[in-house]
């Protein structure tokens, strides 16, 4: 029934205009998320997955335009679907170990999207730092600090109605803002002071390095200081808590 209504709405989307295009997928998504999270429905995952799937298909239908370059749009669809599935699965999943693994999926697909936008180095760095270091640390901490299996506070959610409705509204406002016509990017904005991109070094590591060490030199130094401070800080906190335990 719901699917029939959705399909008929989708066919007339062009006449219905922006509110429906934005509102329908978000509404479906909110309903599906609520089904997945609110406790009486939580054990039965069928309505939640149907609603979320319908939201995803609906959003894809409205997003798809026939004139797009085929390879890019197919790749974008795959990565975006993986990313959103990962994000949703992470928030719905009760077990923190699985949540961390879903987060790893989000990182992987984000790296794919970075790669599509010509940010090869950033993509590799994100993959190494996040998936290689941060998630492993997370898994260690979860294993150090967990009872057996998922506990009650992982299965029960705080104020799901309010937060999810708020999230849907926020998303609607954001997308409506993105759909506003933006002023085109002027040449003065695009060119920059020290590291204006040159024709031959587009999308190479050398150009990124020039930008980092010419435009953002102070920030690089500050980032180094921050890393040292964070190392000292975490060692100090670890020692302190051990002394407290006696």
């Amino acid at each position: 029934m719901l699917i029939m209504i959705a399909i008929s709405l989708a066919q007339h989307a062009a006449e219905l205009g922006l509110p429906v295009i934005i509102g329908l997928p978000i509404l479906l998504g909110v309903v599906g998320y609520l089904f997945a999270v609110v406790s009486p429905f939580r054990r039965r995952s069928a309505p939640a997955s149907i609603c979320l799937l319908a939201a995803a298909i609906c959003a894809w239908w409205f997003w798809w335009r026939p004139g797009q370059p085929p390879v890019e749009s197919v790749l974008f669809t795959i990565f975006a679907a993986m990313m959103l599935a990962g994000g949703c699965g992470m928030q719905v999943e009760a077990n923190p170990v699985y949540a961390a693994l879903w987060f790893a999926l989000v990182i992987l697909s984000t790296c794919g999207l970075f790669l599509m936008q010509g940010a090869a180095f950033v993509s590799a760095a994100t993959l190494i730092v996040y998936a290689g270091a941060i998630i492993v640390t997370f898994l260690f901490v979860i294993m150090l600090a967990s009872q057996s299996g998922s506990s009650v506070y992982d299965r029960r959610f705080r104020n799901p109605f309010l937060s999810i409705t708020m999230g849907g509204l926020l998303l609607a406002v954001l997308i409506a803002l993105f759909k506003q016509p933006m002023p085109p990017i002027s040449r003065e904005q695009a060119a920059f002071t020290l590291s204006a991109p040159q024709a031959r070094d587009m999308d190479t590591l050398a150009a990124l390095g020039r930008s980092l060490f010419a435009d953002h030199l102070w920030s690089v130094e500050l980032a180094g200081v921050l890393l040292v401070i964070a190392t000292f800080g975490s060692i100090l906190i670890a020692r302190q808590s051990r002394e407290e335990r006696g």
């Binding site: 970075f114 760095a125 695009a190 921050l226």
Partner: peptide, 24 residues
């Protein structure tokens, strides 16, 4: 230009620091 990528590298740095301290 490359400012977006530079900013992302800084985000990565801050996230790593954050993760270390917060997990401790």
């Amino acid at each position: 230009n490359y400012h977006g990528q530079s900013f992302t590298i800084f985000i990565l740095t801050v996230a790593a620091c954050e993760a270390a301290i917060a997990l401790m």
